[in-house]
Write a protein that binds this DNA or RNA. Structure first.
Lengths: 152, 152
DNA sequence: ACGTTATAGTTACACATGAAACCATTTGCA
DNA sequence: TGCAAATGGTTTCATGTGTAACTATAACGT
């Protein structure tokens, strides 16, 4: 954090620049997790996010998946194409609105989820283990305040 | 943060999953800044990072830039090609090692830097303004502990 | 000195990603 | 009803990004 005020035009010190530090940390963490399930299931991060949200909310449409994952609909469409092809997600057409799809995890989709979810949680635990209880509490609070929008 | 332990196979709640929250926050922040200088200077995030590090450390080689920005050398090579082309970065050959390049900001490069650096700092200030002093202190400490590696 | 190995940097290729165009269906409203 | 506008979703195209191959130069070991 900027302790003293540097003149605004002074060279940016990236290693103390909050957005940069967040980016480095976030990428390292997400990539470590993604590497894990990519190797085991050839599953991209966007695909995993789609599966995760369908695990919680069965029967969503593609648009609703996009809203919940904060991904754009093109990304979701492509992820779904692969997931349906792989047999991990089922897609039906909504009664009474033939545009809408009705999505859900298949049996094997659930099986994948039951392997990947613990992997993800394990990485999260490793990360949080670097903090003590007090720090974890503050982190939760700080993230709540910084979080841009929190869509359900 | 996980308050009670869910069974490991229970559906992941993305909105409480730390790596996911970090990713959303980080992307939102970095993208907001990048949008700003992309519109004004047609400058990508990787290009800006190269400029920022050259502003602080004059005369680096491409490899050293890559180390300091944590980007890979291909990304740096491409960024440099555009920056040299745009006339914002100067490139010479190292005396005594014709492989190495010697990089620095040009006059106009500095001029760009003096516009972009304040924009970046301003975004950082906006972000930190959402926290009180105590939270900022904890955040600094927490990031230090979570930070994967801290290369100079 | 000379061949092997390592290093700096670029190029080529394959793949991911986002914006805009597009098709099908449904909704709103005259 | 019927037609314009909106919505769900896919496809297209242009661009970005990472991996591996490649070129040029330098360092190392004999």
């Amino acid at each position: 954090m900027p302790e003293e005020h540097h003149p605004d035009h002074a060279p940016l010190e990236l290693e103390h620049f909050l957005p940069y530090r967040l980016s480095i940390l976030s990428n390292a963490v997400s990539q470590a997790i993604a590497d894990d399930y990519q190797r085991r299931f050839d599953l991209s991060m966007t695909e995993w996010r789609v599966m995760a949200v369908l695990a919680r909310f069965d029967g969503l449409s593609a648009r609703e998946v996009a809203e919940r994952t904060l991904m754009d609909k093109v990304a979701v469409s492509r992820a779904l194409a692969k997931l349906v092809e792989a047999g991990w997600v089922t897609r039906a057409t909504h009664d009474g609105d033939k545009r809408r799809s009705v999505l859900g995890l298949s049996e094997t989709g659930w099986a994948v989820h039951e392997v990947v979810a613990p992997m993800a949680r394990s990485h999260e635990r490793d990360l949080l283990a670097k903090l003590d209880e007090e720090e974890r509490t503050w982190l939760a609070r700080i993230l709540d305040k910084l979080q841009p929008v929190q869509p359900l």
